[in-house]
Amino acid sequence: MPLPYRRGLAATMVTAAAVLAVNAMPTAYAWSWPSACDYAYNYLPVESPTTSGLNFRRGPGTGHSSIGHLNKGDRMVAYCFADVSGPDDWDYVRIDKTTKSGIRAGTWGWVSERYLKVVGHRG
């Protein structure tokens, strides 16, 4: 089931550009969305798997290799999602805290939205 708080990627990028233009703050790096992202989240959901042994993948879909496995209680922040063919949407996430299986905090990857629940929000 799709998660709440979605907004089109184009609207997010326009909003971000307006904020940067007003604030004129230099940044240390330029953020780049993965090309597979179809939409960005308006509020960044903090998510946790509903099952253990969930594949954490390099791309959206089961055709991409697994980086490792996630377990119940692991936390990640979702930034955008891909609406790939098939029944599931895939969230592009950043691991919030090193996982029980050893995936380091700050690692980026893709997880099937079907096996995630929202446990909080950031941003």
Rank of each mutant, 00 (worst) to 15 (best):
M1P: 14
P2G: 02
Y5W: 07
R7W: 15
G8F: 10
G8N: 01
A11R: 03
A11C: 05
T12Y: 14
T12M: 13
M13E: 15
T15Q: 02
A16S: 12
V19G: 02
L20Y: 14
A21I: 06
A21M: 08
N23W: 08
M25D: 15
P26R: 07
Y29I: 01
S32L: 03
S32C: 01
A36V: 13
D38E: 12
D38T: 13
Y39I: 00
A40E: 08
Y41P: 07
N42I: 08
N42S: 08
N42D: 13
Y43H: 02
V46L: 08
S48V: 15
P49S: 03
G53F: 11
L54S: 08
N55P: 04
R57E: 09
R57C: 06
G59A: 03
G59N: 01
P60T: 10
G63F: 10
H64G: 13
S66F: 05
G68A: 06
L70H: 15
G73A: 09
R75A: 10
A78Y: 13
C80F: 12
S85N: 15
S85M: 13
W90N: 01
Y92K: 01
Y92I: 00
T99G: 07
T99K: 04
K100T: 15
K100I: 11
S101G: 08
S101W: 07
I103M: 06
G106W: 07
T107V: 11
W108L: 04
W108D: 09
S112F: 01
E113R: 01
Y115W: 02
V119L: 01
